[in-house]
Amino acid sequence: MVHPTTTKHYFWSKLGALTNLSSKESQLPPLKSHEVLVKIHAVSLQYRDLVIGLNKYPGNFPDQLVPCSDMAGEVIAVGDEVGSQWKKGDRVCANFAADHIAGDTSPEIQRTAHGGAIHGVLTQYKAFLPHSLVRIPDHLSFEEASTLPCAALTAYNALMGPVPVKGGDTVLVLGTGGVSIHGLQIALASGARVIATSSSDEKLKVATKLGAHHVINYKKTPDWHEEVIKFTGGRGVDHILEVGGSDSLEKSLKAVRVAGWIHTIGFVGGGTPTDVVFPTVRKACYIRGIQIGSVAQFNDMNRLFSLHPEVTRPVIDKAFPFEEALQAYEYLKSQAHVGKVVIKVE
């Protein structure tokens, strides 16, 4: 096979508006002996990708940042020093932070986050360090697997952290976005009961179909925490995937059981990166701030998914062709989706 010498990719000409998302063709640097070249088949979008483009996410970014952190693809070339770990044809994802191999994150690891501190994956071809790659479960398509590095692994890290979810626990997931839907599925695969919230009855029907035991429309029931307490017989829930931000945190604190866990993940419900929630994510500290996960956790998660293939199958709301990346961003911004929004790079 002749190795590609160029790659078509997207980049932010400047931050502040989605219309600044541009594309071009660039030269691929020669593959280094310690690198693995991957043909990217699919990329899934995160809320982080959206707010970076809108210049609402703090950090130092490379000029003309190539966006996105989550991909699935196929190994097409392996450097001479890589060894037998990877070979042509292997189906892989790259971890969110390239150097997060195991254990806690650190400032140094944070500086290897794709689509932020370093260039991302919304490109046809990209070279990766071998230690950052994870094998895709055989039963998943490239589109499904592209949802794993951030949304699925974040949910897994939350629920399998210092006090892992166990059979008989109750898990509350806020909303029906990618992290929340993966959290619902992982909780069910672990034998837990699940309560899901949304502002849309149609989205709650999807959550119910996926196996949620109880659903709450928080627009119709503003004091949704009281409904959670009733459903748990006054006990409260064991784990909460807190993706709403400061607008929902107060009610999450009322809904969690004594000595339960609130896993702060995002601020899609409102607030800003300067509110009380985002710093817990940035420091990955307890309440418990979640900042994705390690390669070791990724491999553990994939074994769970392979054991329960149907329960944990990723939910893709809509897949856009590569040429319609801007439309994919706009659809994500509309919050009309359930589960994940994917861009097919092929």
Rank of each mutant, 00 (worst) to 15 (best):
H3G: 09
A17M: 05
S23H: 12
E25C: 04
V36S: 05
V43G: 04
Y47N: 14
D63A: 09
V66G: 02
P67A: 07
E74Q: 15
S84I: 04
Q85W: 06
K88R: 15
D90F: 03
R91T: 02
D99R: 11
I101K: 14
A102W: 10
T105E: 00
T105Q: 01
E108P: 01
I109S: 02
R111H: 15
T112W: 14
G115M: 05
A117N: 12
T123F: 06
S132W: 00
H139I: 12
F142I: 08
F142C: 06
E143Q: 15
E144C: 07
S146V: 08
L148K: 09
A151E: 02
T154V: 01
A155R: 01
M160W: 02
G167Y: 00
G168T: 12
T170D: 01
T170I: 11
L174P: 13
G175H: 11
S180Y: 12
H182E: 01
A189P: 06
V194C: 06
V194W: 06
D201Y: 05
L204G: 02
V215Y: 03
K219A: 11
K219R: 15
E226M: 09
V228E: 00
I229P: 04
F231M: 11
G233A: 03
R235Q: 14
H239N: 15
H239R: 11
V243C: 08
G245H: 02
D247W: 05
S252T: 10
R257I: 05
G260A: 01
V276L: 12
V276N: 03
T280Y: 02
A284V: 01
I290S: 05
Q297W: 07
F298E: 00
M301L: 14
E310P: 02
I316Y: 09
I316N: 12
A319I: 14
A328S: 13
A328L: 09
Q335A: 15
V338C: 07
K340F: 08
V342A: 03
K344W: 02
